[in-house]
Structures are given as C-alpha cells and as structure tokens.
Simulated assay, not measured.
Amino acid sequence: MMEQAKYYSDIADGPETANAYWMTTDDNVRVRVGIYATNTEAKGTILLMLGRFGYMERYGRVAKTFADNGYSTAVIDWRSQGLSDRMADDPQAGHIHRFSDYQKDVAALLAAVEELELPKPYYLVGVSMGACIGLRAMLDDLPVDAAAFISPMWGIKMSTLQRVAAWPISWASQKVGLSHKYVPGESGDIYVLNTPFEDNNLTHNADMYDYWVDQAKKAPELQIGGPTLSWLYEALSECRSLSSVPSPDIPCITFCGELDQLVDNSSIKRRMEQWPDGQFAMIRNAKHDVLTETEEVGGDVMGQIFQFFAENTK
C-alpha cells in the first residue's frame, strides 16, 4: 500500500504536480519514489535512475524540462540514498550489501508506476550508477521502448595502481567484517559542500552547482558521503559481469563527457560499439553530469533524447 512521503518542494524547482510515496521492497526496505506528472499531452513516462548521490529533488529542474516536453517522470531514492532506508549504521555511508539489491528497488519503482497508472510507453534515462542499474534491469526485461544513458557507470575510472589495489582490499573487507568502512580517502563529507565549484568534477554549470549546494545546506538528510568498501567491491563486480553480456535489443542513445573523472569512458565506447540500434556521443570538454552541463559545452542533450524517444516508440 502506497503512503505519502515527504517532498522538499522549496528546493526542488520541479513541476507543481510533484508527489512522493513510500514503497516497501521485497526485502522489507522502505524506499521513496518520486512522481513528476506532466500537464501537457502525455508522450509517456521516463523512469529516471540517478547516480550514487541521487535523490528525487536533485533532478527537479530536469524533471520540469521532461514535463514541459510531455513526459511524466518516476524517480527513486536508491537504498542508502535520499530518504530511503540506509544500509549502514553510519547514515552518511554510501553502502550496499549486494549490487543486485538495487533491482529490488527497481521493482518497487515499477510497482508504483503501475499502481499510479502513469502514461505509457515507458522510457529509461539512467545517469552514472543509475545507468549500471538500468542496464541490468533492461537485461531482466524492464518494459521500456528506448533508453538514454548519461555517463553510464559500466566501468569505474581508476589509475592502474588504484585498480590493482581496489579488488583485493574491497574483497578482503568482506571477509574480515570491515565492508561497512569507507573506501580509503573517502569519508562522510558531503561532496558539494566540501568542493568549491572551480574544483568540482560534475559540471561547468555554476547555477546548477549552486542549486545542489543550496539543497545540501537546507536538507542535509538527503545527502550521503563517500562509498564503502562493500559498495566498491559490488560495483566493480557488477561492471565486470555486465561487460561480458550482450546489449539488449532495445534502442539506446548514450552521452558521456570527455573530461569525466568518475566513469571509464573506454568501457562505454566498447559497449556502444556493439549495441544494436545504439547511438553514442562524446561531449567535448564536458564533465561527468552531461545532462546538466552548460549549453555551450553540452549542447542540446535533452532535445536529442526527446527526439530519440519519439523516433523509437513502438
């Protein structure tokens, strides 16, 4: 049974139609699902799967653009993010027990969409970690007509030395009861509050960065800090597993930033070279969050996504 959940309308800048609901997953985790309905003639519903910092309000402005162009949006706070249940005693920790647990959150998102009878067809927009979760969901028959991925986390960017160390350290943490500890060099600090705009690795868009900083100051309970060793091991394992699986036969368009410091662009290129009906764009001089980049850098990524969805509706 769906219950109304808290939604921070004052910081989201989203459509006035916004609502949030509590859903309970199959393993009894309470997650928050956000719905941004469109008031125009409906073209369908976008299942918006955000990255490791994501929560409903973070992409309120993006959801407004979706709504203005005829798309309702359904978004979820993944477990350990936003207002959803946290998986570690430290609420700031980006923690997960198994990467496959995210698919239970996907199931809760779909259940909410179906119960609310949001307009079909469904489309997927996956951002960073959300693209990794979304690809797995598509392989498990997520009912979408087409997908758009933004800087998909199909590989994590690391130096050779970091990669050599990451596997044994994160694996060993599982065996000695330290998997809930932060990855070395990470902490519970909120990224946007501790990183000046000039040094950030997300976007060149100062207005968008200020928007996220304002959200973090006004609603710190929505934020998380760095990933845990368990998250790292599970994420590396999932990226490796997905790398050996053929792409689903669903139309896909993917964008990534030339200056991305978080995901491995070479993994994205390899995937997209073999994707049936796949389109790929490397955005010159763009950072990680291509969807919120300045127009001078990112161009009209939104417009390209809408056109792609319109051309690939069954």
Rank of each mutant, 00 (worst) to 15 (best):
Met2Thr: 09
Ile11Asp: 06
Thr17Leu: 03
Val29Gly: 12
Arg30His: 15
Arg30Gln: 15
Thr38Val: 03
Ala42Leu: 01
Gly51Val: 00
Phe53Met: 12
Tyr59Gly: 13
Tyr59Ile: 07
Ala67Asn: 15
Ser72Thr: 04
Ser72Arg: 02
Thr73Trp: 02
Asp77Lys: 02
Arg79Ala: 09
Ser80Gly: 12
Asp85Leu: 14
Arg86Val: 06
Met87Phe: 13
Asp90Thr: 13
Ala93Trp: 05
Ile96Lys: 10
Glu115Gly: 03
Leu118Asn: 09
Gly126Trp: 02
Cys132Asn: 11
Ile133Leu: 08
Gly134Phe: 03
Leu135Gly: 08
Leu142Ala: 00
Phe149Arg: 03
Met153Arg: 01
Leu161Ser: 05
Val164Tyr: 12
Ala165Ile: 06
Ile169Trp: 05
Trp171Cys: 03
Gly177Pro: 05
Ser179Trp: 01
Pro184Cys: 00
Gly185Arg: 12
Glu186His: 10
Leu193Pro: 10
Pro196Val: 07
Ala206His: 11
Met208Ala: 14
Asp214Asn: 15
Gln215Cys: 14
Ala216Thr: 05
Lys217Gln: 13
Gln223Cys: 13
Pro227Ser: 04
Leu232Ala: 14
Leu236Asn: 01
Gly257Ser: 05
Glu258Lys: 14
Val263Ser: 15
Arg270Met: 10
Arg270Ser: 14
Gln279Tyr: 00
Lys287Pro: 08
His288Val: 01
His288Gly: 04
Leu291Cys: 06
Leu291Lys: 02
Thr292Val: 13
Thr292Gly: 09
Gln304Arg: 10
Phe308Asp: 02
Asn312Cys: 05
